[in-house]
Design a protein around this nucleic acid. Structure first.
Lengths: 124, 124
DNA sequence: GAACTCCTTGGAGTGCGCTCGAAGTCAAGA
DNA sequence: TCTTGACTTCGAGCGCACTCCAAGGAGTTC
């Protein structure tokens, strides 16, 4: 099993070391990260997999506190799958609504872009 | 020409009166909103149309400072269409990249959702 | 053994985008 | 005339998600 320093974990996850410590402190990880005898953090593959999931949730706009709630459910182990599912389904709803909204606003902006392109073509 | 109070403008635009004042103060509008003799703001149809554009830019994630820049260009009038176009094109790039990212993360979350649905089906 | 690099912690600071509060003005209605 | 309510300004405050700093420890390199 590979075991990475915080700098390596940062590199692999695309987060900063600061953010990795912050996530851990804030309860977004499933447990405290292992330590080397020196006290330095050592990230396992499982840690990285979980952090990837956190990243997916975060970059689809899930607030930190909801990620924390989800982490707490997973941490508590078997028996709350329905609750986890509900949380993810609710999140999917939000994200899809948001995607639709952004897409429709983007179309309106595209229209504006087309107008400018026309104007500039004619004057060129 | 209709002329709306700030409360009416808020209702129509979906923003709060606070936010409308804030946008004006921060240079996101094309000019100071007209005033009734009482000093109260009166929003015209043109104002509302511009605010709608601002809303589109904002809700596709354009930072306030870029909206301000765009507003400044439009305010300055003819002659800088190329610059406005460049700004909008750059924004579109960003939004499209973001849409792609969110969509792909969402697919991964959907996969997770499917796993939970399976688990729960079996145990039911 | 000195310098360098990477790490540690706790807590403060930052940037963004609002959001709110206080104190005052004004017009309309009872 | 008095009250009510919508508005005004200015400036402070807030929530979020980091981001950074200071002071110190440990291990490697010259």
């Amino acid at each position: 099993m590979t075991s990475l320093t915080i700098a390596e974990a940062a590199e692999r996850t695309g987060l900063t070391a600061h953010t990795l410590r912050y996530y851990e402190r804030d309860g977004l990880l499933l447990h405290a990260v292992d330590r080397a005898p020196s006290g330095h953090r050592r990230y396992t593959d499982d840690d990285l997999r979980w952090i990837e999931m956190v990243t997916r949730l975060r970059s689809t706009g899930m607030p930190i506190r909801d990620v924390r709630r989800y982490a707490a459910l997973v941490r508590d182990g078997d028996g709350n799958e329905a609750e986890r599912l509900a949380l993810l389904l609710a999140h999917r709803e939000v994200v899809e609504r948001q995607l639709a909204e952004v897409t429709s606003h983007l179309r309106a902006i595209d229209y504006k872009i087309a107008l400018y392109e026309n104007t500039l073509d004619k004057s060129a």
